[in-house]
């Protein structure tokens, strides 16, 4: 499916998620290429965020959900007993729809997890903070007020701060759950630039409702649609293939709302 040089970062097989008797995701099978940007698109309620949370086992925080199937990352099923979920989440970072800031300054927020996890020495903190803020495209805007409270930043800046904080943990994969849905166009553009700059350096998986954004950013796209109330993978493939020549009627119907080739 991928180019010859590309190998999968994740292999999702038979993934089904249930909440009691309700099936949220049904029998999802697809691969996520390493080092590329994968967009996950689909209507609201299709289970895109649930799928994302299965990749780093954040779904474990919702004990009412039952998960079946396998998600292989780095050659292992993430739900195997030997896999430490906290270590997995450090390697597979996530950025949420709403930015979360922790108490303290901008720089404290950037190195928050790296400091707690012992990934950086006290002396190396400023260097790490600068590098991650540059990678997140925020450095120029905050370099003169690094000790200011993080909450003084705009929501768009807080979202980039969240990206910087995730990058500070040096994850191999960055998951993004609708990272620009609550942002203005300028902030959205800044975040998109940040995501684009990660191409080739990290595996990035972006859940988005914005089809134009998915088309602009993604190398690879997976489309999930609700069928009889449960989310099913319609198709996954190269971005241009899914957008221009969708195989399934459901994908065509979904893209037909706004998607043009």
């Amino acid at each position: 499916m991928f180019d010859r040089d590309t190998h999968p970062a994740f292999e999702v097989r038979g993934l089904t998620v249930r909440s009691g008797t309700r099936t949220i995701l049904h029998d999802v099978n697809f691969d996520i290429p390493a080092g590329q940007i994968t967009g996950i698109i689909g209507p609201s309620g299709a289970g895109k965020s649930t799928l994302l949370r299965c990749l780093n086992r954040l779904i474990d925080l919702s004990p009412s959900l039952d998960v079946e199937g396998t998600v292989r990352f780095a050659g292992r099923d993430v739900r195997e007993g030997v896999v430490d979920p906290d270590d997995l989440r450090r390697r597979v970072g996530i950025v949420f729809q709403q930015p979360v800031t922790f108490p303290g300054s901008i720089v404290t927020n950037v190195v928050f997890a790296a400091r707690k996890l012992g990934l950086v020495t006290r002396r190396g903190e400023s260097e790490l903070a600068e590098r991650c803020l540059r990678d997140a495209g925020l450095w120029d805007e905050v370099k003169d007020r690094l000790e200011a409270p993080a909450l003084t930043l705009s929501v768009g800046q807080q979202q980039r701060l969240a990206i910087a904080r995730t990058l500070a943990g040096d994850p191999e994969v960055v998951l993004m759950d609708e990272p620009t849905s609550s942002l203005d166009p300028r902030s959205t553009e800044a975040i998109e630039q940040t995501v684009a700059s990660l191409q080739g350096k990290k595996t990035v998986v972006v859940v988005t409702h914005q089809l134009d954004q998915a088309r602009r950013l993604s190398d690879w796209v997976a489309c999930i649609c609700p069928i009889d109330g449960r989310g099913e993978l319609m198709e996954a493939g190269f971005c241009c293939d899914v957008f221009c020549e969708p195989l399934r009627d459901e994908t065509r119907a979904y893209l037909g709302l706004t998607g043009r080739c």
């Binding site: 780093n56 954040l58 925080l61 906290d86 270590d87 997995l88 989440r89 450090r90 390697r91 970072g93 996530i94 949420f96 709403q98 979360v100 922790f102 928050f112 997890a113 707690k116 996890l117 969240a162 904080r165 995730t166 943990g169």
Partner: peptide
Amino acid sequence: PAHTIEAASGLGLRRSM
């Protein structure tokens, strides 16, 4: 907020942390 705890978990912090 639950999302604060979720964000900390998402960074790989252990429950004790």
